[in-house]
């Protein structure tokens, strides 16, 4: 895998996480967003870990790496796949510290750091995802859209399997709380199906999510 670098936090995404839908904020606010994203970008330490496993997709469930998962959404996503890639990414603990610190003196700044952190980890995950797509292509595989535990009906409990399989605390410094939250909070785990044939029309992102009707952040 070529060396990956997070060089930019997509500002449109920051706007979206702040609740702007298709609108550019005022100059004053964009200025503050620029300053915060710049500071955050200088403070992040993006890390990733991923590994490939054989996959069996059955009628009702799927099996890979010792996991048996029953999830309709996931089954739909993985239909026709024979391998699966598990990945975990994080931008590190500094983003959480910036939010905690900002909350002491300015909630707007805290909200911006929060949004910028979310945008940053998504961007970083996208970068890692495209690198995985290239790796898979070299092996003659096509990638499905990534799918995360806690997404739709894919139970959050599988975070534990991800953590053990990828040795997340040691490999990238991400640990789970008893309630299965990831720390640092700006971290993502996901699973990517690999198939021999291309499948162009798989729903992804908000369209797949069961909560999209009420979600304030939907695209």
């Amino acid at each position: 895998m070529t060396e990956l670098r997070l060089t930019e936090i997509p500002v449109r995404e920051v706007y979206r996480y702040l609740g702007y839908r298709g609108i550019t904020p005022s100059e004053e606010i964009t200025g503050r967003i620029r300053a915060c994203t710049g500071q955050l970008l200088g403070a992040v330490s993006p890390r990733q870990v991923h590994a490939y496993y054989d996959l069996e997709v059955g009628e009702k469930n799927m099996r890979a790496a010792g996991m048996e998962i029953e999830s309709k959404g996931l089954l739909r996503n993985l239909k026709g796949c024979e391998r699966v890639c598990l990945l975990a990414v994080t931008i590190g603990v500094e983003a959480d510290r910036l939010v905690a610190r900002a909350q002491l003196h300015d909630m707007l700044e805290a909200a911006i750091f929060q949004a910028a952190g979310a945008a940053a980890v998504e961007a970083w995950c996208d970068l890692v995802n495209s690198a995985i797509r290239e790796e898979a292509a070299q092996q003659g595989y096509y990638c499905r859209p990534r799918f995360s535990p806690g997404y739709g009906d894919f139970p959050l409990e599988y975070q534990k399997n991800f953590s053990d399989l990828l040795r997340m605390p040691v490999s990238i410094g991400v640990s789970l709380t008893d309630s299965l939250l990831m720390i640092p909070s700006k971290s993502v785990t996901a699973l990517i199906g690999l198939s021999r044939t291309e499948q162009p029309c798989i729903l992804q992102g908000c369209e797949e999510c069961s909560a999209s009707a009420e979600c304030a952040y939907r695209r």
């Binding site: 605390p169 040691v170 640990s175 709380t177 008893d178 720390i183």
Partner: peptide, 13 residues
């Protein structure tokens, strides 16, 4: 002795 795999307070739980 390796790490517990948990992050300590205040960052973790």
């Amino acid at each position: 002795i390796g790490p517990t795999g948990k992050l300590l307070e205040p960052l973790g739980d």
